[in-house]
Design a protein around this nucleic acid. Structure first.
Lengths: 205, 205, 205, 205
DNA sequence: GATGAATGAGCATTCATTCAT
DNA sequence: AATGAATGAATGCTCATTCAT
């Protein structure tokens, strides 16, 4: 009985720490963020941090995992609703752009900090990129199988899609005074679809 | 006369330091590279480093500038030889991929380390990305003007091209056991050209 | 009735903690042993430890006291059985060496760790040494009184005996691959007895 | 030319650090002494310490080595002046006791702190003990060879001598209000010599 | 110009101890 | 009695930078 409350409290604390870490890492970058900063932001103590997470690295990695899961999940569920391969691509693109657009800080953390924070993180990020590209590729392969698009090197195509998106989002995240990220969607959509041989017209909109 | 010799000597020293810094940064990454390491590699002393460069950051930034200039120059000169816009894109793509392919360490430094090394570096890298995308865009605009391709949002297209390339090269640079980077060229070429409405066939090869 | 059971339970717990502490301190040394380790070994919690003992130091000190009492008691009872002073020395020597020989970990803890663990422990150990030397001295004085040995500075003699034993045992405890400690007994016996003017021959064996 | 001065200065600094370390380690013990404390005592900075010594451990070990060398050297030279084996033992005993007597702080550091400061130090101290015992044993063997004393287990005898001395000195070093260490010399002398079969009388005094 | 000794702020991590439950 | 989450002071070590020589 009491246990429930305690576990709850512990979870709340843990969550508070994760949120604080997100804030601080976003604000200062991985290397420049101190555990002290995070502890203060989480209204706890350094020892408290280490009770919940074994190290700074583990804390950051945890963050990356949470975010990755969120992205994959959102993308998958956006895709799930659409039967037509091209519409799927559309939906995925839209949801990804929208997710990034509403979390600029997280985006910078995810696309910029995490890459350069050290070999362990590069490796992790490479893994995450690979997961995403695999997801894209799977659906491109489906599209080919269904005859929706002509056969092509889906591995490279997936990388092109991911990279293009990545680039646009990264620039937006780093820009001093960025416009709305969503505005790039229409043009991007046309280009990416055309790259896999889908000529976009009114029919697909 | 003597002055010339002295200046020469100084330049040689400076160059030696830049080379050493390239080695060490490539080997260890920006944060983990120590000024001591660089001094040793350059066969000089820490004081010597600080005579030629005001700070570690400035030294690294200098390196980025050198590398950027080299890339831009190579790309421009590869383009310069080709009259046809599409052939130009081809040439540029080929030379960029080849340059990366022959310097894996530098590539990692450039595309991965430099991004996450801190706000000043992110900003610098954003600038470099912008330079490149501007270069691409200029030529896309030319192609549109010359009627080689149909009008399109060249800003986004340039980002797509750059991002796609970036992604493919970064994955290759981070991969444990990467295949030859050049092998992706044909598929990438087709996709990128098609994305701007150029259907590739034997005529363009 | 119930109280008895409760008190019993408490004593059991306390004992379990002392045993666990012995294990852990022996394994890791005083400074490197964590209260957490001890709690785990005792199958209780950190809070439980602090219910029974006010501090890490107190716990260790308690251990030292237990061990000292054990040693003194064993030595006294070994001595008690022998009427002849020289035979008493013999018996004491044998039992001490045997006790150490069968607890190498404890010995290291007792003779090495405890000395360097801080001023409080040095002081405690000094006290323990003093207890032992006093014990030895008392019996040497008896021997003098009984005319078994010629008068001598029994204070120094007791220290010599204790120190010699201490040295041999400590070296054995620290050695990487120690031989059987008991083997030193005959030679040690001759030396120590001779040092107080007892020439050893077959009659005393 | 200038180099001489610089090297001198560096040596002075190094020496100042070693002296400071001796002070602080003696005052607080190994574990409780902070590098900060030593830096302050040496009127330098933490960085300065680490320029001259790679770690706290190395600094302490250096100290031990210096002291060991000093002891061995003094003992050897005291021995060198005496032809008669028994006189040698006398001389060695006297010089060792005198050396300890004039450095109570160092003695505590050497005999108490160093033993319990951790496995590396125990090992080191074991080595030092072994060096000393070997030295003693060598001379006991000589004495046997020369017929000055009857054959005996010199290995154990050397340990007995060293241990006895160790014990007496340690107790003195740890005592709150110690008397003059030298006063124990006559009684100790008689006991130790007698232990190896040398009956002391006026002739040897 | 060059050297390298010196600086000192900064930082992740540990751990004995406390206390609300 | 017992738990375990929370605390926070303590510490060895690093490293970009400075400056006397």
């Amino acid at each position: 009985m009491i246990k429930d409350t305690e576990q709850e409290r512990s979870q709340v604390r843990r969550q508070r720490i994760l949120d604080a870490a997100t804030q601080v890492f976003t604000r200062k970058g991985y290397r420049d963020a101190g555990m002290e900063d995070i502890a203060v932001e989480a209204e706890t103590s350094k020892g408290g941090l280490y009770f919940h997470f074994p190290s700074k690295q583990a804390l950051f990695l945890q963050l990356l995992d949470r975010m990755t899961a969120l992205f994959i999940e959102r993308t998958e569920s956006a895709i799930a609703g659409e039967p037509d391969p091209v519409a799927r691509a559309d939906a995925a693109l839209r949801v990804v752009i929208h997710t990034f657009a509403t979390h600029r800080g997280l985006t910078r953390l995810f696309l910029v900090e995490a890459l350069g924070a050290g070999p362990e993180f590069s490796a992790k990020m490479l893994g995450i990129h690979t997961q995403f590209t695999a997801l894209i590729r799977r659906h491109l392969d489906d599209a080919v199988t269904q005859g929706a698009i002509a056969p092509l090197d889906t591995a490279v195509a997936a990388q092109v899609w991911f990279g293009a998106l990545n680039q646009i989002v990264t620039c937006w995240a780093l820009s001093e005074s960025p416009g709305p990220l969503e505005e790039t969607y229409p043009a991007l959509r046309v280009l990416l679809l055309r790259s896999i041989g889908v000529e976009v017209d009114a029919a697909h909109r």
